[in-house]
Simulated scan of single mutants.
Amino acid sequence: MHGDWLQRALQDDAYIRWVTGVQLWERMTAAVAQLATLEPTGLMLASHPQVLPFLGPAWEVWVVDDGSAPLVPRRPRQPVLQGLRGTVNGHFCLCLMAGLGLLLVSDGEQLGLGWHATTLLCAIDALRNHVSLPVPLPERLRRAVPETPDPSKLSDWWAVLAMTPPPAITVPPLAETAMVCSLAHEVKTPLATIQTLTRSLRQRSDLPPVVQHRLAAIEAECREQIERFALIFAAACPLPDTLPLMPLSLGELLQAMWPDWLQRGHRRAIALILDVPKDLPPCTSHPDRLQSLLGGLLDRLIRSLPPGSTVLLQVREAGAYLKLQFRVQRVGAAAELVQAVGQWLVWQPETGTVALSLAAANTLLQSLGARLSVRLAASPYDDEVLAVFLPRFSPDPAIG
């Protein structure tokens, strides 16, 4: 169980970031492999089997074998597999190079990513306590840990990770699709009934203000839940025909949605800031689907943040795209644990909230010609950035 004991050793580390997602381990290790091949020298320690292909001769590579397994060196130019799988119960990868060290650890449900010196040194100490390391290796590992990450190397890592394509989401069997569609329908129907009855009650003039306020809160919560499950239904039960795309003013769409979003943030003590420049070119999208997806992404962020946090929505031109960033400034507490439920859904045990996974949201965005990227915070004091890239509208020069 390579990943379990290492995960326990790092559970109180303030810098490591824990994330979940579809095949995140495969994507992260592929990015590490690509970055390592660009470096002439380095030190690699990973769970069995080793994955980095054709590293330079100056690379020192060690693999933890199964069982009690002491570490065994691996010839760097020996052809290896394309994916780091490790054991059934967990896997890890420690990659140290000039100016940057990276640690990946997974128990099969969530993945930890770290590059701060405290995180890397803690992992080395845990390895020394659980693995039969050759005498000089622990000290070489510690000396190879950079005191601070080289900003340019860290930027290279994010660039390589961004260019590593996420794996395609496999369409599940029909039975699972039907079940998700049925679940979404069964949840939406009673919520719609409650919303209608609440709206009817609010028309009465003899209700005291406190009752009116609570009825408004109930109606708003029902509306948010209905929108969330409508998005889940759209992912699980896609329409047979392609959605028509059209020129769209992203600024006007965000301004129209903004009052409702501000109310959602206010109810959970989350500050929202909108930064949209004037004279933005139009993008190409489907207004209803895009509004639903953006609302779902923001709703998921708001519900996962501790009170007092801030979400900055910022729109900028980015070449052939408009980039809408959700920049998260978290206050105090760590992110709530999110668990994957199948391929479309995630669940927050602390709140019971069910939402569309980022991988599934990205699939829906791709149907609009857009894409989603996520940048984790480098430390608890840094921002997390979720960005949606929307294609700019380009009129057909052959027309007119």
Rank of each mutant, 00 (worst) to 15 (best):
residue 9 A to F: 12
residue 21 G to T: 00
residue 28 M to Y: 13
residue 29 T to L: 15
residue 30 A to E: 14
residue 32 V to Y: 13
residue 40 P to Y: 11
residue 40 P to K: 13
residue 41 T to N: 14
residue 41 T to D: 15
residue 43 L to D: 08
residue 49 P to Y: 07
residue 50 Q to K: 04
residue 59 W to V: 07
residue 70 P to M: 09
residue 73 P to R: 01
residue 74 R to F: 12
residue 90 G to E: 05
residue 91 H to A: 15
residue 92 F to W: 12
residue 98 A to P: 10
residue 105 V to Y: 03
residue 110 Q to P: 04
residue 117 A to K: 11
residue 120 L to G: 03
residue 137 L to I: 07
residue 138 P to V: 02
residue 138 P to Q: 04
residue 142 R to P: 00
residue 148 T to K: 10
residue 148 T to C: 05
residue 150 D to V: 04
residue 154 L to Q: 11
residue 154 L to F: 02
residue 157 W to H: 10
residue 166 P to S: 09
residue 170 T to H: 06
residue 178 A to F: 01
residue 180 V to D: 00
residue 184 A to L: 00
residue 186 E to C: 02
residue 186 E to D: 11
residue 197 L to F: 04
residue 197 L to N: 07
residue 200 S to C: 07
residue 201 L to T: 03
residue 205 S to H: 15
residue 207 L to E: 10
residue 215 L to G: 07
residue 217 A to Q: 15
residue 219 E to P: 05
residue 237 C to N: 02
residue 246 M to P: 00
residue 254 L to W: 06
residue 254 L to S: 04
residue 256 A to N: 10
residue 260 D to I: 02
residue 269 A to I: 07
residue 269 A to E: 11
residue 270 I to F: 04
residue 277 P to W: 13
residue 279 D to N: 13
residue 281 P to M: 08
residue 286 H to N: 12
residue 289 R to G: 01
residue 289 R to T: 09
residue 290 L to Q: 01
residue 291 Q to E: 07
residue 291 Q to N: 05
residue 299 D to N: 05
residue 301 L to H: 09
residue 301 L to F: 03
residue 301 L to S: 05
residue 304 S to N: 10
residue 305 L to K: 00
residue 316 R to G: 06
residue 319 G to P: 05
residue 325 Q to M: 14
residue 329 Q to P: 01
residue 329 Q to M: 14
residue 330 R to T: 11
residue 330 R to H: 09
residue 331 V to G: 03
residue 339 Q to M: 13
residue 342 G to Q: 02
residue 344 W to G: 00
residue 348 Q to Y: 10
residue 348 Q to I: 11
residue 350 E to K: 12
residue 351 T to V: 08
residue 354 V to A: 01
residue 356 L to K: 01
residue 362 N to W: 00
residue 364 L to I: 01
residue 365 L to D: 00
residue 367 S to A: 08
residue 369 G to W: 01
residue 395 P to L: 06
residue 397 P to S: 09
residue 399 I to S: 03
residue 400 G to L: 14
